[in-house]
Write a protein that binds this DNA or RNA. Structure first.
Lengths: 143, 143
DNA sequence: TTTCATGCAAAGGTTTTGCATACGC
DNA sequence: GCGTATGCAAAACCTTTGCATGAAA
């Protein structure tokens, strides 16, 4: 499960960030549409429909902030813009299958990589905080 | 091993692409600096120092072409620009460890994912052509 | 000679920044 | 009230495109 809005607000407060209406609106929008991999533009459109006064720059700044706090994860699926999704640190990771033809992104649950991660950390002396696995190919429709 | 320049030229010929001096120069530059994960700008600078008449657009077009031919692989390490490296299809995959502090990129060989890939292909009906695994963390120096 | 590739500059798209104003704490 | 956040517009980037010229096959 992703965090609740109260948990996120608490994270903000802990780091002395202000809880502004804009930040709350953006967080709520994310919680309502969390299933998708939203771009900044997606968020901006969703938010703008109900709160036209909000600015694009605020969306970008808020997404950056939430990514820094570890609430969101910034991803790149190769379509020229960043996309964001809730990071689910305590849970098992999920990975992405990206269709090279239609761009569809499927999710795939898996935690096989944990042991691999440990082995790599030991071998390279890296302190690994996260990993990201993407499969590229063609979905059933596009083959 | 990555392909030799002759093999790449042959690929071009097979698909009726012309072998221009610019394309040759860019391929040679890549072969000379193949160990790194070069951006278009990196290639442009390297190429420009010996052949100042070459244009940025040609670099982009050639990199795209080589990626289409399967010679290069376009990657994204989250620094706002695409990076390219030789794709080594016949060999075992290698993956990347990216330091979130200094941006260093380490490579890590592994082929544990082949069986996972098969299982996922079966479960999702995707025809998987490639995968990409990235670990994020902090390198020895930055911890 | 025909067709494709190049170079340049301009356009496109995404993200960041400067600055005056507004607002949370 | 202090200091941070916002909105707007401009700027900064990376990448793509249009078009006349030039070169490969």
């Amino acid at each position: 499960m992703s965090k609740t809005i109260e948990e996120i607000c608490q994270l903000l407060a802990e780091k002395d960030y202000k809880l502004t209406p804009q930040r709350r609106i953006i967080m709520e929008t994310f919680l309502e549409h969390g299933e998708r991999h939203l771009s900044a533009e997606d968020i901006y459109s969703l938010v703008k429909s109900k709160h036209p006064e909000i600015g694009m720059a605020t969306v970008y700044r808020t997404l950056d902030l939430l990514a820094d706090l570890g609430v969101l994860q910034k991803m790149n699926f190769g379509d020229g813009r960043s996309r964001y999704e809730f990071s689910e640190q305590d849970e098992h990771h999920h990975h992405h299958l990206i269709c090279l033809s239609c761009g569809e992104v499927l999710e795939f649950a898996d935690d096989l990589l944990d042991s691999l991660e440990k082995a790599i950390a030991e071998a390279t002396q890296f302190k690994i905080t996260d990993h990201q696995l993407k499969f590229y190919g063609y979905c059933k429709k596009c083959q």
